[in-house]
Nucleic acid binder design. Structure first.
Length: 168
DNA sequence: TATGAGATCAACT
DNA sequence: GTTGATCTCATAC
């Protein structure tokens, strides 16, 4: 999987979910608003929003401008800046640092200040994967609409997923 | 281990 | 006024 760093801290993306404007579960489903405007812009940008009042969630905008599609980064495998992540998260167990959207954003210190920033300029860095990996697909997590759509993608066998995928 | 509540706020109805 | 792409901690089995 691709590796993402924010200010030098981050790791390999091991779990994402896809959202699209035709998807009832997506923020962009009901059209553009002040919050989701970034999703309607060009790809390669970061969309950050607050969830349940206390957590931040990070998305990468995809496809052409106007399609309002994005991938929610649900989990990464920490590889860079482990000490800083531990300090920010207050936990030492590596697999608890980034195994979930809210955890990941706290570990990378992603906030509304990052909303609308480009993925190819500081503090963001994207690094291509070194080798192909096996991907498993499943249904999405933590949503109440379009629950049956298999738009969750993860690295097979990774120990850093927010939840395990059904055996495949 | 499993289930449940609380935290806390911006956007939407 | 209600809801939510969540997490953590507490209490119950």
């Amino acid at each position: 999987m691709i590796k993402v760093l924010v200010d030098g801290v981050g790791g390999r993306i091991v779990e994402v979910e896809a959202y699209h404007h035709t998807d009832p579960a997506a923020h962009s489903y009901r059209g553009e608003t002040a919050r989701n405007a970034v999703m309607f812009g060009p790809p390669g940008y970061v969309y950050v929003y607050r969830s349940y009042g206390i957590h931040w969630c990070m998305n990468f905008v995809c496809e052409a401008a106007g399609s309002a599609s994005a991938v929610l980064i649900r989990a990464i495998e920490p590889t860079d800046g482990l000490p800083r992540m531990r300090r920010r998260r207050g936990v030492s167990e590596p697999r608890l640092l980034c195994s979930g959207p809210g955890r990941l954003c706290e570990a990378l210190r992603v906030t509304a200040a990052h909303n609308g920033l480009a993925l190819d300029s500081p503090p963001f860095q994207l690094l291509a994967r070194l080798k192909p990996v096996e991907i498993v697909v499943g249904i999405r997590i933590g949503i109440t609409k379009a629950v049956d759509k298999p738009w969750r993608y993860g690295e097979k066998g990774s120990r850093f997923l927010s939840k395990p995928f059904p055996a495949s």
